[in-house]
């Protein structure tokens, strides 16, 4: 049987009504093995204006590079384990912030290894389909990453988080929709 995937439509401006349930700014419950990090950033439109109605979803491996957690009912509280999934809307100033643990490296194509990264899906009013991007971690050997190798060298920096001076566990990473520093988005 061969069917065609249903067509995407925008999340529109009111997605918080339906997509609030799984929102979390803390992806890794206390005790999750791994190096804790906080990621802060902004989502900016083509005029450099903050986008206050964007939604970011994260998918990541655990510290040993394993995928495949389970999303629990937020009301289950203590029973909640690290799932690798996160959903965070931007605030009125276009900012987002979340804490997690740094993932381990995971297998890439043809025997390669991928540097630690977060898979990011971005949705907002004005985007008719979700966009895919990635966030890589500073001070990692990313030169041999098989996915970054597909990205023109001049644009790779848009996928790299930077360390906040004086707060090494806080990473900064902005998403720019257009312009000179337009974030690299992937067709996947």
């Amino acid at each position: 049987m061969s069917l065609q995937a249903t067509t995407w439509q925008t999340v529109g401006p009111y997605f918080r009504i339906g997509l609030e349930y799984l929102n979390t700014t803390e992806l890794a419950p206390a005790g999750t093995p791994g190096e804790p990090v906080t990621v802060v950033g902004k989502v900016l439109d083509g005029n450099g204006k903050p986008i206050s109605d964007a939604l970011i979803e994260i998918w990541q491996a655990d510290a040993s590079g394993e995928y495949g957690g389970i999303v629990s009912n937020p009301a289950d509280g203590a029973a909640t384990a690290f799932s690798g999934f996160g959903r965070i809307p931007t605030d009125d100033d276009g900012r987002f912030s979340f804490s997690t643990i740094k993932p381990g490296p995971v297998a890439g194509p043809a025997g390669t290894m991928q540097s630690p990264h977060l898979a990011i899906r971005l949705m907002m009013r004005g985007l008719l389909r979700g966009l895919t991007t990635r966030m890589y971690f500073p001070s990692e050997a990313v030169d041999s990453d098989p996915i970054l190798e597909l990205v023109p060298a001049t644009r790779r920096a848009t996928l790299m988080a930077t360390v906040t001076p004086g707060s090494p566990s806080t990473l900064q990473w902005n998403i720019e929709m257009q312009g000179e520093r337009e974030t690299v988005f992937f067709d996947c």
């Binding site: 439109d45 907002m124 990205v151 929709m177 974030t183 988005f185 992937f186 067709d187």
Partner: peptide, 11 residues
């Protein structure tokens, strides 16, 4: 103002 202008990179 929100759609990317650079071509997407096939992943």
């Amino acid at each position: 103002e929100r759609a990317p202008r650079q071509p997407l990179i096939k992943l």
